[in-house]
Design a protein around this nucleic acid. Sequence first.
DNA 1: GCCGTTTTCGGCCCGACTGTTTTCAGTCG
Length: 561
Amino acid sequence: MQNSEFAKLFYEISELLELKNENPFKIRAYQKAARNVEDLSKNLTEIYKSDGLKGLEEIPGIGKNIAEHIEEIIKTGKLKKYESLKKEFPRGLIELTNIPGMGPKTAIKLRKELGIDSVKKLEAAAKAGKINNAANILRGIDLKKRSRGRYLIDDAASHAELIVNELKKIKGIKKILPCGSLRRGQETVGDLDILVVSENPGPVMDAFTRLPYVKNILAKGKTKSSVILKNGMQADLRVVPEKSFGAAAHYFTGCRAHNIHIRQLAQKKGWKVSEYGIFKGKKQIGGETEEDLFEKFGLQYIPPELREMRGEFEAAAKDQIPKLVELKDIKGDLHMHTKATDGANTIAEMAEAAKKLGYEYILITDHTKSTRVAHGLTGKEMLGHLGKIKSIKGIKVLAGVEVDILKDGSLDYPDEILKQFDLVVASIHSNFKMPKEQMTARVIRAFQNKYVNIFSHPTGRLINEREPYQIDLEEILKAAKKYNVAIEVNAHPKRLDLTDIWCKRAKELGVKVVVSTDAHSTDQLQLMKYGILTARRGWLEKKNVLNCLSHDKLLKSLHAK
DNA sequence: GCCGTTTTCGGCCCGACTGTTTTCAGTCG
Ligand SMILES: Nc1nc2c(ncn2[C@H]2C[C@H](O)[C@@H](COP(=O)(O)OP(=O)(O)OP(=O)(O)O)O2)c(=O)[nH]1
Ligand SMILES: [Mg+2]
Ligand SMILES: [Mg+2]
Ligand SMILES: [Zn+2]
């Protein structure tokens, strides 16, 4: 079983325990365990096999009980506790709690009083007038049906920008800052969380809830409002006074576990942290800015991308928060397509656009013949295509290729062709469904080719569309190190592949990383920023990212194989 | 259920909004 499946199971147990009206801290313990398992790069099954229960208990948030759960699942493929909970509370009951505003208490009450244990039955009862605030509930059901779950980061960012631009027009607003998972640069975003500084929140709330993009108002108060936008996305607004800006930005940026941790640190010092500041008794002693908030705790500033409860507090206490890579450090883009295959622009157009971004170089990487859907080229066609590269003033246009790794790990072009490119990017575009060991061996065989320099979109996942193929990334990273292959962080919001966690692992293993857009048009060259966010979430520094190097040093580093 | 450099038992973040609650529970951020 995959870690993600263990995590899902523990989340589900926590929901079932809520319905059972269990101790809220027990519920949180399961959520915490799920979260920590999700964040692990090592497989739980492997940990158990090598270090047993003791190994499992070393994972934060996993103690004797949950370790035994994991053991039971590995040994029997089932968990009795979960099976019996599931019998007690049908799936439909959990679905009821997914309706906004409806929690476990209400769901249980509905079942007890009206025999309702599914959204369908609730809808019918509401329409038949058997329920108190039927209108609200029907609205909630409707919202749930329309909501698309989690959004791609570029989608969230563009909607945040629309709202920010509208809010800017309001008088008396001193600051506007989108926070939450968007500010942390998470690969998907559940909702928009926008912070506003104003000493006069009333008019801000009025304006926010009347925005043209707003479809429903979920809540509207003095300091906080929530709305549903026309596209189904939720947007939350907090308004605080200037003196609370830092604490509020910190609170609203999260993550939740990170917030709880800093509040616990405050308790130990006899202080209190809330979104309004750091307090000693009634007196505010800090939190005007985020920098001040961390400083008051003797902590180095923690960038939003690292606020995930993944070791940032330990690092900050020791002054070991790395100087994270930035967009301005990027000197070139090493993955892009042109009209010759499935791109929209010519080589010259891509080069001009890249030059405008201030890049020193780009690598043209069109598809090879096996990727027929993308009109992949034969070796001869490819060399002809790249032969048309004219020197363009102010930017180096490198001749590259995104060569298919075939089913057996051989490449779509022979070495005589491959050796003619400046750099070779390799990736998987077919035969996704094969056992993990076979896929891993296939890719490692490709790494052994003398001319392969970069492995692109290593898991092939498409967020919200396609699961990653089965591949042992730990082995892939080790092989990448051995054969001097750089691993790509594909910056496209649908991919973001490698993920943040695996970026961190790559750094630990000393594997070189490149951040590339895989642009299929000049516009898409600007997606680089999302790849950078992912790299930053993976604790990567400028020195870990090869396309922060100048052209000469880049080629030298990759050609050493 | 987890955890511990004051604790192996007794804590576990803190606050906003809604509804009918006249002093709080439920839900959510
Ligand atoms: N102290 C504290 N802060 C919370 C809690 N829940 C949420 N927050 C803070 C941290 C979150 O990042 C921020 C926004 O809440 P969201 O529910 O929108 O979560 P977030 O944006 O992190 O993830 P999302 O992508 O929206 O699911 O509010 C909580 O229980 N306690
Ligand atoms: Mg959010
Ligand atoms: Mg939110
Ligand atoms: Zn590509």
